[in-house]
């Protein structure tokens, strides 16, 4: 596992639900077809209300001009990130768009679980609220060993909570690799 994650911040608020992350009308595309799945990147975050998209200014699109990849690869969120439906298309669309980490105050249960078990990206929890500390476009670096987030645009470093018991699944890659490592399912 990479011990450092670098990227540009995209900041969202509280209660970002999965209908905002990927509106239901787009849940029709294949997640396994290499071309068709790009649609998920294209429509990632397309349901976020404009004024909430890319705080503090807002009205900053996550992906532009029909592109399936975003230049923003670290999402900063508030409380209850990923609430709502169990659609795994939500963490999947973020990964397809290039997201490598989310740093939020707290997560909805199923979204957190999907992110970890599917190995889409690492969902970190921050110790103090980051939404007002970081601006969309800031240059961030997450140090996994030190469990810190540094905003290189403001030269400030923040503590992240330990990944706790799910670190074994994250390090294995996903729930299948974890189960193979522990002998629960036979190695491929």
């Amino acid at each position: 596992m990479n011990k450092v994650i670098e990227g540009m911040a995209y900041v969202l608020g509280n209660d970002v639900d999965t209908d905002q992350i990927i509106p239901a009308e787009h849940l029709v595309y294949s997640l396994s077809d290499p071309e068709e799945r790009k649609n998920y990147g294209k429509f990632a975050m397309s349901g976020v209300p404009a004024e909430q998209a890319g705080l503090p200014e807002g009205k900053i699109p996550f992906t532009e001009n029909g592109q399936s990849e975003s230049k923003y690869t670290i999402i900063i969120g508030g409380r209850n990130f990923g609430c709502g439906s169990s659609r795994e298309h939500a963490p999947a669309c973020m990964e397809i768009a290039g997201v490598r980490a989310v740093v939020a105050e707290s997560y909805a249960r199923i979204f957190y679980r999907n992110s970890v078990d599917g190995g889409f990206f690492i969902p970190f929890e921050c110790v103090t609220r980051m939404v007002e500390e970081i601006k969309t476009g800031d240059d961030l670096i997450i140090d996994l060993n030190a469990s810190t987030l540094t905003n290189r645009s403001s030269n400030k470093t923040y503590e992240l909570k330990s990944l706790g018991e799910v670190i074994e699944i994250i390090e294995a890659g996903n729930i299948f690799e974890y189960a193979r490592k522990t002998g629960m399912i036979p190695s491929a």
């Binding site: 659609r87 599917g118 729930i175 299948f176």
Partner: peptide, 18 residues
């Protein structure tokens, strides 16, 4: 309770979930 595709696929293969 509700789960995602990955957990559901795990159950399909093993009949178990954490």
């Amino acid at each position: 309770t509700g789960i995602g595709n990955t957990d559901a696929a795990f159950i399909l293969g093993t009949g178990k979930l954490w």
